[in-house]
Write a protein that binds this DNA or RNA. Structure first.
Lengths: 316, 316
DNA sequence: CTGAAAGCGCTAACAG
DNA sequence: CTGTTAGCGCTTTCAG
């Protein structure tokens, strides 16, 4: 696992210096000598490092992604680092610029950059996008259309005839995806659908959404949050105001984060195998780093499912 | 903010080539040329990168730490990356080895390594330890003695006469600190005190602690978790078994993570200004990276306080 | 003030 | 098979 400390030249199977080599290795280890990875990288053009750059390291939606990518990286002998863009296209640019030439591959999750910027980075180092379809770039996305479909059908089945989408960041690919899918499926079922926001994709943002909704609300509504965090914030705001979830309003989230089963009522939410997503993305980026040539442009799609818990019920 | 793209030589205030330099800059920008940071680092010995290496990126206890460190890093023109050791001393060694020579400083949080290993890394790059007092190394720690004191006094004031500590990782510095402080203060107040575990410092670990406690429990107990995650798991296990928190058992956590106010009942927990901790640690490591010489060996201590919520009450 | 050359620490391709 | 050299892409020093 641990790469040889001293230049591989010393470990070449030699006859005469076999023991000499061993001694050098021993002394080097004793002295705590480490090869300078930067110098090594300068000549090999390989850093054996991978980066996951994501919008928000505190968003539990990314946890399993990181875990999966980390496992794949470790197995392949790579070290994984994370860099955060803080939901800002500008910081994303800076971070990508700073990390691109220092790693062998980048898994880009929750990007807020235009496609062109991503392609630019991809010229320096292989990039695999997560939950975003960038033309000509390998990517792995979760089946949000299906997630939206089962969500709407679940709500429709409960008797709801109107769904409200709590929008997240406008530059977010999943946001657009979720909204468009929701709208289409809702229409297919003859449901009314509207969108409010955008809000920050955080608990705080959800609280704000809830507070705004409280003014001029109608009974028997169903809200679908951009993600679990927002759904949770929404529930908190509504609950604090004395309403009941799901009696007064049903709430659905996206991501199935660990927080979803922490709150009361437990959150109904759309789940995806993010660990697999991370694993696939990392594996692909490693393959590219090793010289594989990107095949088709079709994104890898992983399935989603609705986890029905307590936050949804028939309208009052 | 963004460092010049082309070698600084081109931006030297020259007379004749002032416009030439400008043109080169322009063309370089157009072509998307970026200086290779590795090559630059090789000659300057500066990478303008900082690393926060921590035990578990999914532990909310580290969120504010990361935020504070990130803010300090950005302000100083550094890019921050995170690396995770997954609660493993071995992975910690690998991660430190891989990152040490690639960054200008390391903030080490939740280390599971022996002091000697940390000193070894510190020979390569400045290290600031968080929540761990490493002899001769700058560090910033939260005042856990005080946290333990107010916890015990709170419990004592409620009428509890026995406190049980749900232990976390044995190699964890805060674990030892919390336990010793708890024990001492409990004794001062004539309370009985015992320790169970160790458990994994996760919700899962807390669930296990709760399940074990359920066998052979005594009424009117008070449990103090190694961290919020464990306390939450404990509550879940106990609640699932039909008991009530805090009626049947009071529970206190450490860290005051965002999850603490998500669960029902809301968790009483020890809070610390982790954002400040991150900020201080990063600021110090940057100073060292810039050539400052470490002053005294005394750790910086930040205060703690008890956030009383719903998970504690008088014994039944 | 400008342009050339040395060197950062390594690896890889080269002669011996 | 071993030892030497060139060179990765930058910065910085040193002549011109």
């Amino acid at each position: 696992m641990a790469p040889s400390t001293v230049s591989r030249a010393f470990s070449r199977p030699g006859r005469v210096n076999a023991q000499t080599a061993a001694r050098i290795q021993a002394v080097a280890a004793e002295l705590g000598y480490r090869a300078n990875p930067q110098a090594r990288a300068l000549s090999t053009t390989r850093t054996m490092m991978l980066a996951v750059v994501l919008a928000d390291v505190t968003n539990p939606a990314f946890f399993d992604l990181v875990r999966g990518a980390g496992a794949a990286a470790t197995e392949a002998g790579y070290t994984l680092v994370l860099a955060e863009t803080q939901e800002s296209a500008e910081r994303e640019r800076d971070v990508l610029e700073a990390t691109a030439a220092r790693v062998d591959g980048i898994v880009l999750a929750g990007s807020r950059s235009p496609d062109a910027a991503i392609h630019q980075v991809n010229k320096v180092v292989p990039v695999v996008a997560v939950n975003r379809d960038v033309r000509g770039l390998p990517s792995v996305v979760v089946d949000l259309e299906h997630g939206a479909r089962v969500t709407v059908e679940h709500l429709h089945g409960l008797g709801h005839r109107e769904v409200m989408y709590l929008a997240g960041p406008e530059a977010s690919w999943p946001d657009g995806m979720r909204w468009r899918s929701l709208r289409q499926v809702a229409r297919e079922h003859g449901m009314r659908v509207r969108r409010v926001g955008p809000y920050e994709p955080t608990v705080q943002g959800g609280v704000r959404a809830g507070e705004q909704w409280l003014d001029g609300r109608r009974r028997g509504a169903a809200a679908v949050g951009y993600n679990d965090l927002m759904a949770i914030g929404f529930i908190r705001a509504v609950t604090r105001a004395g309403l009941k979830v799901p009696d007064d309003v049903s709430v659905v989230g996206f991501d199935n984060t660990s927080s979803a089963e922490l709150i009361t009522p437990e959150l109904t939410t759309v789940a995806a195998p993010m660990r697999d997503v991370g694993r696939i993305a990392a594996t692909n980026v490693i393959a590219l780093a090793r010289g594989a040539t990107s095949t088709r442009g079709e994104p890898v799609v992983v399935p989603t499912r609705l986890v029905e818990r307590e936050s949804t019920a028939p309208p009052a």
